[in-house]
Computed example of a mutant assay.
Amino acid sequence: MAKKSLSYHDRFTRAMLANPRVIEEFFRKNLPDQVRDSLDFSSIQLQQESFIGDNLKTQIVDLLYKADFHGRPGFLYLLIEHASKADPLLPFRLLKYIVAIMEHHLKTTETKELPLVYPLILYTGKRPYNHTVDLFDLFPKEDRDMARETLMSPYHLVDLTQVSDNELRMHLWYGTMAQVLKHIYDEDIYPFFKVLIEPLKVIEVQGEESYINTIVTYVMGFGETPHQEDLYKVVKTLKTVDEEKLMTLAEYLKPKIYQRGIEQGLEQGLEKGLEKGLEQGLAEGAEKSKIEIARSMLVKGTDTEFIMSVTGLSQEEITKLMN
């Protein structure tokens, strides 16, 4: 009986709030002055999209109206709550719906500008709504000011292109990693790595073999240099780098089959003529190549942990290749 009554409630609410006169009067009555004054009421159009999950559709109605604010496209989002018990996390749920609306707008219009989405909640429960409608009240009291500042301020960007190497060298662990990320696209990685070898030796003394191997794998796998032999000689000065593993890297990490896989991926993506196709083609080509590399390394007897670090394949995927 409850589901039936909610279904009637849903149909009634949708029918009423699809009526242009009801829509205009409702928004004129309930919008704040600033929003109301910027809104072109003649532009309001009910949309078909819904952004609530199926599990909540017996408790909630959501209506999306496209509208112009100061001549620019935006949305009015009306969430109608007719559940018997109010949801204390409603502000968080509403935030997710707003983000979903923005994402849908970006996909359908292919624009790079976010639309204004003004949310309203029409609560029709049996008792007065007794929870907060402020998102930041959902955080612990001690964290609310920081949460507000974090979410409502410009995000913190660490742009390594604007940080000097000298500044990064002041921080051994983070700084070494950051320098590698900063220089990995150098046309020739060798001059940078010759300088990097000294902090790597300091780290090596502290017994961080995994850290060293991760950096060496990354640099040799993705860095470019016409001085490969010189690069190998410098890497070999690190005592924790196994020479057999080093030669495995040289032989397998950038073989022709890997390049061929990338080229096949590009070709497949371009044939599809869509960005999505290109991305999928690249991913499929690279994935096939990683599997070929892993198979070759297994034949050579390379240990699985090293294969995992080089190819990015999981233990389960490598085990399947062994069978």
Rank of each mutant, 00 (worst) to 15 (best):
M1W: 10
K4Q: 13
S7A: 15
S7T: 15
A15M: 04
M16D: 11
L31I: 05
D33R: 15
D40Q: 11
D40A: 12
I52K: 11
D54A: 12
L63K: 04
L64R: 02
A67G: 09
A67D: 09
H70W: 13
L76G: 12
I80P: 01
H82G: 09
R93K: 14
Y97G: 09
M102R: 07
E110H: 06
L114F: 05
Y118V: 11
R127N: 12
Y129T: 02
T132M: 07
V133Q: 05
D134F: 06
E142I: 10
S153T: 01
P154C: 04
V158F: 02
L160Y: 01
Q162T: 09
H171K: 13
H171G: 10
L172P: 03
M177I: 15
Q179N: 06
Q179W: 04
L181H: 06
Y185F: 07
V195R: 14
I197G: 08
G207M: 01
G207L: 01
T217K: 03
V219P: 02
G223P: 04
Q228K: 11
D230N: 05
Y232C: 11
Y232E: 14
K233S: 14
E244V: 06
Y252T: 08
K254P: 13
Y258C: 04
I262C: 08
G273T: 02
E279A: 10
G281H: 01
E284K: 09
K288S: 14
K290Q: 04
I293V: 06
R295G: 03
L298V: 05
V299R: 11
D303S: 11
V310L: 00
T311G: 00
G312C: 01
K320Q: 11
M322R: 11
